[in-house]
Design a protein around this nucleic acid. Sequence first.
DNA 1: GTTAGAAACAATCCT
DNA 2: TGTTTCTAAC
Length: 741
Amino acid sequence: MNQYLEHLNEPQKEAVEHTEGPLLILAGAGSGKTRVLTNRVAYLIDACGVAPWNIMAITFTNKAAGEMQERVEKMVGSGSGVWIATFHSSCARILRRYIDRIGYETNFTIYDTDDSRQVMKTVISRLNLNPKVYKERGILARISAAKNELIDPEMFRREAVTSDDCNIADAYRMYQQILKSNNALDFDDLLVKTVELFQSDPEVLAYYQEKFRYIMIDEYQDTNTAQFLFVKLLADRYRNICVVGDDDQSIYKFRGANIRNILDFEETFGGAKVIRLEQNYRSTQNILNAANDVISNNSARKEKHLWSDHGAGAKIRFRRFDTAYDEADFIARDIAERAASRKCPYSSFAVLYRTNAQSRMFEEKFVRENIPYKLVGGVNFYARKEIKDLLSYLKTIDNGMDDLACQRIINVPKRGIGQTTVGRIASFAAQQSVSFFEAALRAEEIPGIGRSASKVAGFTNQIERYRAMTDYLGVRELLETIITETGYRTDLEAEKTPEADARLENIDELISKAADFEETGGGAGLSEFLQQVSLVADIDTVDDTTDCVLLMTLHAAKGLEFDSVYMAGMEDGTFPGYLSINSGDPTELEEERRLCYVGITRAKKELTLTASRTRVVRGELYNMRTSRFVREIPDELIEMDQETGYGMRRDDRKEEQAQGYAGASRSVKTKMPAFRPRDFKVVKADHLDYTTGDRVRHVKFGEGTVQSIVEGGRDYEVTVNFDKAGVRKMFASFAKLEKLS
DNA sequence: GTTAGAAACAATCCT
DNA sequence: TGTTTCTAAC
């Protein structure tokens, strides 16, 4: 038997061997689809003699792409040449080569959400739209939705009926104009423009159709219309398309994912073969049963029969606490205890929650318990101010048309170029219809610019020098030059605050990423570096070599698995989120339920669900009911907590009536200001354990010496000279300083 | 032109 | 609660 068929079950084998024609693999959670995909690639190359460069595999994350690439290379030898990438990177790669055929330049910039918002702000003010009615985020959401459906500004305009829609259509058109004049694309454009390129240039399309004779798409249930068309166009010639997905794991409707893509696959690609993978190799039967019970409450889905031969395993634990504080505390301690007693690595644990805002408390508790952890998501590394500043330098150097990047750094670090000057340059640029940078080059011509002209010239000279340097300097060296010469580093070093130090660390990290890129990038240039950097997802930065607990949202956990999973915040209003409860659209609740299904099925051996009776949302405290999803799991699968009595799973009668903030309406929320978790921190201690001159430890700043203690009305104000973090003033009740003997 | 402090405002999930 | 924008003073 072929080596790539060994250790596979029957349907898996069938999936690997079915190489010609359209194939739909309905792969339940944990059914070994990644294995099937990698083996299928290897099988195509080794057994069918397909050239590696004729194969394309689309994965959901860069991380998954990297892992798959690695595994394939291990099987068929290194340098396989198979194209394995995400939709977005694939499109970026294609556009880097051919976008000049549709009127952009190949060194285009990719705008992130932040950049898009900036652009939209100008659009709103230029169109004189009422900013009270038209928020950037809202308009951008509409535009994004349109792009996902491949609706361009003209079509949007034609279909607009209300005056509101007309305004949005105008905004959409102007937004695209600005992007184009900046030679920039937003995330959605990457797909839209690639499809546009394929549709308008038969030569390019034919080239890629010929190239990608075998196409595989993972997580097909989460593709949107633009992605579907991209795939459809590419596969049209050879029709060797294999898609893998699970309709129960479709969790990206908000991003335009169209579940019809997977449901209609057989019709779209006539004669498609369908294979179901229903044996689960990941979880115990208890976990699987819980997942099945929850998901069976959804109506629109393909029935499946997932089973496992791993045995029943441990019951699912459910714990309920008074506050989210206690909840986080329990999870941190529980993990610490289990990791120690079982001698299992921290990386076998994960804490999953619905929203990033929930992560804060876990971080705090994990620091306190000394548990190594990695927070996935939150503020994206590349969204940090210092990183965006430096990247804007690179963008300005790389793409002189990117006005946004240029305006961002023209006065960073301070060069004495203020708003008024920037405004004058911008209007001159508009009037002459040149880019902002070009206008800056001709600063002397700008009326009223006065003495600032020389300052502007200093900036443009600097940028032009850097541009010349790109010929002989790599990205890393260029970055280092910028950081030193502009004084960016010295400015931060002079600050001597922990925040500035953190920024410096981030900058060093960026430099090492640049160095990394130089080593592995094969001589690729600045545009490629910037592209790679703009397309990294949070989850991509997780490396499995460091042993730590992962904290992340349920969305980010997709595709991952852990021995022990903690799902926190199992409350109506938190999860499912109140928006989905109050929307009146049952499909939104079903999507949340699928998210719950995804979460449960991440667990291999152990699943712990936790909830809190109260939760602070935007500074206000609400009473919470246990999540309906918890109640959808039958009693016999759940082990409750006897010791503390916190485990009462069903809310008692009274609580059932008490209105959580997810209740029928928002007005019935219960405010309990006296109970705010913050409040009992502000209670002044009657005495302090330490006094002036004592050595103390702070959870964040480390060790230091107490310089003075001032008794204030509500609290003691303590001044501490920390060894690492310097002198800090703080309130005793917040600082929780610990005396060192 | 720059800064800090106050007021206003916000609403998942992600490339 | 946390962040961004506005305003007033340096």
